[in-house]
């Protein structure tokens, strides 16, 4: 194995070890919360059906006409599913900041030891970036696995004649939330993850600016972040600039946006490299 790749792998494995507790908590929370949804939602439906049949002296068919069949979609369109996803997204946003600051804010200035390692400093940067994305993809994987297990649980709980014939995949495809976080529509999935990646790369640059220039760095970071945001929003303003709503085709706006985001990501990595190798202080 090449020495530089080995050092990157070592650092990534090290960062993953440090992330693992946090990640396991999020995975556990996702499974637990989803499990509640897979059990509570169909149970509540069954109880409502039974109650309707007993209070109204109605047949199963009449109750079905009133409440409709229960589908797996009903079990996954709940806060118990959306909640852990929201916690996971905000958790990793927090971790993207924490992953840098803990090197300086810990009991010992661990940053000193990390920066003195005989490896390229950008390996530190990339190991942190990789591990955050590995964590995000672990949660996505957890969600996918959970949904297919959940389908078995829900179909076992709900009586066959009350269960709508919608399979796990159809239910996933119908839920608008999953279009963005699960590769139901690969281009949406790549788009959302691409925007997220650029966001984290820019965030890393802002953190390194603050670490390099202290108070002055905060202002530099605000200006840099605002500039990156303004440039990213530029394609949406083209129609206003030209006073013509149809001056660009929507596909062209997407291609321009992709180009701009790529440019922002490359610029941010280059700025981060400069800061990390030349400016950062311990």
């Amino acid at each position: 194995m090449k020495k530089s790749l080995k050092s990157l792998l070592n650092l990534t494995a090290f960062e993953l070890d440090r992330l693992s507790k946090f990640l396991y908590v999020l995975i556990g929370l996702t499974f637990l919360s989803n499990l509640i949804s897979y059990i509570v939602t169909p149970m509540r439906y069954i109880s409502r059906m039974n109650e309707y049949m007993s209070t109204q002296s109605a047949s199963s068919q009449q109750a079905l006409e009133y409440y409709n069949r229960f589908s797996f979609y009903n079990a996954i369109d709940t806060v118990w599913i959306a909640g852990p996803i929201a916690i996971g997204i905000s958790g990793f946003l927090f971790y993207a900041v924490f992953i840098w600051y803990r090197e300086w804010m810990g009991k010992n200035t661990f940053a000193y030891r990390l920066l003195m390692l005989p490896v390229p400093r950008m390996h530190l940067y990339f190991s942190k970036l990789i591990v955050i994305y590995l964590g995000i993809f672990s949660l996505i994987t957890t969600q996918i696995v959970s949904l297919f297990i959940g389908f078995q649980i829900v179909s076992a709980i709900v009586p066959g004649e009350w269960f709508a014939n919608v399979n796990a995949l159809q239910a996933i495809q119908m839920n608008p939330l999953f279009i963005y976080i699960i590769p139901v529509e690969p281009m949406y999935f790549l788009g959302v993850n691409g925007i997220g990646l650029v966001f984290i790369i820019v965030l890393f640059t802002l953190i390194l600016m603050e670490r390099s220039y202290s108070i002055k760095g905060i202002f530099m970071g605000i200006v840099y972040g605002a500039a990156a945001l303004a440039i990213s929003l530029f394609p949406m303003l083209i129609s206003d600039i030209f006073q013509n709503q149809y001056i660009l085709y929507d596909s062209e706006i997407i291609l321009i946006l992709t180009f701009i985001l790529t440019l922002i990501a490359i610029t941010s990595i280059l700025v981060s490299r400069h800061l990390l190798t030349k400016k950062i202080t311990i």
Binding site: L9, T12, A13, L134, I140, T141, I144
Partner: peptide, 24 residues
């Protein structure tokens, strides 16, 4: 051994995502 966790997570993620895409 020190990479086992890294490669395990990476493999599970890749297999699940590829598997889901293929299944779909």
């Amino acid at each position: 051994t020190k990479y086992s966790k890294l490669f395990s997570i990476l493999t599970i993620c890749l297999l699940t995502l590829v598997g889901f895409t293929f299944y779909q």
